[in-house]
């Protein structure tokens, strides 16, 4: 076992994604504690040029092969299993993204390495790595260690500052061919969202609704409030899944990341997937009937009430 901290890099359209920088920043401090190197592993085809964007790492391992031109769960797993087995890092850090879930749990089962999922903090002390993980939609946090002292961690986006992983540097760059390939899952296409009528990432006031809205007809109430405030309506995932608002209005992990001046979270419990998309808002005001809703942990102002009572009163007050 080495003290190395490996970060599996995620990239798209020729750029490293922010969650990778977040992990790399944390990997640097963890590697200092464990006496190893912060190693970024970059998989792709003809991606050597991207290694320069990973200057915060002490070492970049570029796994280059035609079968890795786009992400595929099987191709990544086939390439990573022998690499992680051989290098025996203390930790493998992976973003809790669509692709990260596949890679992390696949590696855990293939290598018999434990996996701590949904981490929001990760440190190393005398007892080894210690991860703080979110459970039960953010209502519980668990502090966990690995029985054998090493393991895999998937981290929720936004848990660590990306800036710490963006520094310049001159890492050692190793280029290797994938030790194995597996094409049982083949990339076909990347589909991008169509532009909606409103770009919620550019709005300064967002009136955002979740399950607490109850009925589709109540959407009118929040539209009236948004109009009175000069803002736009956005939503959590369930509302988009129900088709009550277009997908382009969805905030969160699989929707859009927003940073408005004001974010009114109405009837949104604040699952980690939602918080990931809006915790950067300048001012968050949450209205929820559940006093224990995790949304209150990121809100600046909180109201424990039924949004159907508060919203008409607020619309009348600001629009009256």
């Amino acid at each position: 076992m080495s003290g190395d901290i490996v970060v599996i890099a995620e990239h798209r359209d020729g750029a490293i994604l922010d969650p990778t920088y977040e992990l790399l920043g944390r990997a640097r401090s963890l590697a200092a504690a464990s006496g190893g190197e912060a190693i970024a592993v970059l998989l792709g085809s003809g991606v050597a040029g991207l290694a320069g964007s990973l200057g915060a790492a002490a070492r970049v391992i570029v796994v280059d092969g035609p079968g890795l031109a786009s992400f595929s769960p099987t191709a990544y797993q086939a390439a990573l299993v022998p690499l992680v087995r051989e290098r025996e890092p203390a930790l493998v850090l992976i973003a809790n993204s669509g692709s990260g879930m596949d890679v992390a749990a696949g590696l855990s089962a293939a290598l018999d390495l434990p996996l701590a999922a949904y981490a929001i903090d990760l440190t190393i002390d005398a007892g080894g790595p210690l991860a703080t993980c979110q459970l039960y939609a953010g209502k519980i946090q668990a502090k966990v260690r690995f029985a054998g002292g090493r393991g895999i961690v998937t981290a929720v986006a936004g848990s660590f500052p990306a800036e710490a992983g963006m520094g310049p540097g001159s890492p050692v760059i190793e280029t290797v061919a994938p030790a194995a390939t597996d094409d049982r899952i083949r990339f076909v296409d990347l589909l991008r969202p169509e532009a909606g009528d409103v770009d919620i990432t550019r709005e300064s006031v967002l009136v955002s609704v979740g399950r607490g809205i109850g009925e589709q007809e109540n959407i009118e109430l929040v539209e009236a409030l948004a109009a009175a405030l000069g803002g736009a309506v956005s939503s959590s995932r369930p509302i988009a899944d129900l088709g009550w608002l277009p997908r382009t209005r969805q905030v969160g992990k699989s929707g859009l990341k927003v940073k408005p001046r004001v974010y009114l979270a109405l009837g949104i419990s604040g699952a980690p997937e939602h918080l990931e998309g809006m915790r950067g808002a300048e001012l968050i005001i949450a209205v929820n009937s559940d006093a224990r809703a995790p949304i209150f942990s990121v809100a600046h102002y909180g109201v424990v009430a039924d949004l159907l009572d508060v919203v008409p009163a607020l619309t009348a007050r600001v629009g009256g």
Binding site: D112, I140, A313
Partner: peptide, 29 residues
């Protein structure tokens, strides 16, 4: 799982949020 759970806790919610109470009109105000 190979995980050892050292502790579970309910995170402090509302620890940073200033809570507003009252009737709907007072809250709206």
């Amino acid at each position: 799982s190979g995980l050892v759970i050292e502790a579970m806790a309910i995170p402090e919610t509302g620890s940073t949020a200033e809570m507003i109470s009252g009737n709907p009109q007072a809250i709206a105000e």
